[in-house]
Structure formats: C-alpha cells, structure tokens
Amino acid sequence: MDKPIRVLVAKPGLDGHDRGAKVIARALRDAGMEVIYTGLRQTPEQIVAAAVQEDVDVVAMSILSGAHNHLFPKVVRLLKEEGIEDVLVLGGGVIPEDDIPGLKEAGVEGIFTPGTPTKEVIEFIKGNVKK
C-alpha cells in the first residue's frame, strides 16, 4: 500500500460549528487519506502538539468565528518554532476575500471558503504536500 497522506483536521477558536470540518474529514478519508480529527475549541498550542505527535503532512483548520487572522498565523508560527517546515497549512471557513492575501503571506498556503467543492481541496493537498 502507498503511504497515505496524514491530515490533522482541527477547529481552533471558540465557535462550535464543525459540520464543515466533518464534511472535509469525510471527503479526505474517501480520497485515501488518514484524517486525525481533534474536535472543537483547540488552542494553537494543542494543534501544534498534535501535529508533532501525529507526524502529519497537512494541518487543515476551520474557523467560523472570525478569529482566523489571529489563530491561523499563530499556528504557522508555533510550527516554525518547533522546527517544522515541511507541513502544509490550510485554512477554511467564513473568511472575507480581503483577508486572504495576508493569510497566505503568513504561511497559510491554501484558503478555502464556503462552497468550495471538496474535490478542489483534495487536489490542492495532493499537489502541494511536501513530504
């Protein structure tokens, strides 16, 4: 069997809506990936600790509360502090157009807003994993 891509699906921030995260998790599973789902209300520190222990290829986060400009870049920064440079970081949720360039510059390489077909996310991951 080929080595499956390992993805951490995480919900940082305080909103309790994880329907989107679960749909993505299911789609990635069906695309042959191992999805580690960590549940609601994770701090950036918890997400990075899980990413380290699970040795994932991708960290995919979902936020609907509007805290993305703070929390997404913080996860990227903490990963770098751990010396992790080979993990692809993705963000999803309700994210205004105007915020996207800033997030990409901060190291969140893919941003997916509501209505994105899951196929697009799968293709992006397959095309951009670093390990």
């Binding site: 069997m1 080929d2 499956p4 998790a25 299911r26 990635l28 599973r29 069906d30 695309a31 042959g32 990936m33 191992e34 999805v35 580690i36 789902y37 960590t38 549940g39 899980a50």
Partner: peptide, 11 residues
C-alpha cells in the same frame, strides 16, 4: 475501499 481513515480518539 479507499485506504483512508478517520482517526478520532484524540477528541
């Protein structure tokens, strides 16, 4: 079927 998995014990 797909070789994928949902690993949810960390929750």
């Amino acid at each position: 079927f797909s070789g994928g998995a949902i690993l949810g014990d960390r929750i």
